[in-house]
Write a protein that binds this DNA or RNA. Sequence first.
DNA 1: TGTATTTAATCTATAAAACAGAACATATAT
DNA 2: ATATATGTTCTGTTTTATAGATTAAATACA
Lengths: 110, 110
Amino acid sequence: MFKEYLGEFEELVLLIIAKHEDQSYGLLICDEIHEETGRRATIGAVHATVVRLEKKGLIETDMGGATNERGGRRKRLIRITDAGKQSLLKSRDMKVNLWQKIPDLMISKT
Amino acid sequence: MFKEYLGEFEELVLLIIAKHEDQSYGLLICDEIHEETGRRATIGAVHATVVRLEKKGLIETDMGGATNERGGRRKRLIRITDAGKQSLLKSRDMKVNLWQKIPDLMISKT
DNA sequence: TGTATTTAATCTATAAAACAGAACATATAT
DNA sequence: ATATATGTTCTGTTTTATAGATTAAATACA
């Protein structure tokens, strides 16, 4: 079976998908990762992760219709599932809980 | 080279280490992961991660002296470095930022 | 019509992180 | 001495993460 917890990149991709409600797709996720975090992910990395998230039931996808824009291939539209939301919340809550137990020295005095 | 970002498990282990200031060690981390999250990690997984974190300069370790407890081998004591603290803060800030942009529908209505 | 351009997914291969548990080491108690 | 407790280190495997080349499908326009 697959892992019970979201990997680091899986969580990032899923957060971006959650942000876009149900109009997310591969290349957009790629761009958004860069805009939101400054980090460059390749389309290959994003796609592999999307496949994995779908297998785990954390997202659902289907091919969009023809665009009214310039041109190009149909998008694979992505939306987060309830299980995906739960997974994000669980991950967040776990870390919030741990941060509360870390002493203040974390805010390093120079 | 290694990855620029903390992996999911790396972050968890580093949070536990931060919590313990400078009295952390392998088996304790193992136990704490279970107590804090309910999740069972093996000592092998923890140790491999400690080695990785040290290579990355996010923690420092050295062997402790003889214990005054029951018995047993010396502990490898672990403490987080400034780079480690920065890494945790960066990871947290990135996610806090993303969460702020996720619509309320995340809190699912039944 | 047909060919260039744009947009985007899919495929192939590799590296890094996560995981499991056996083996080994080093204390103390008796 | 040797049993027991505590803890690290080692070996091997699976899952995630990464990169970028290739393929596909739509529109524009000559």
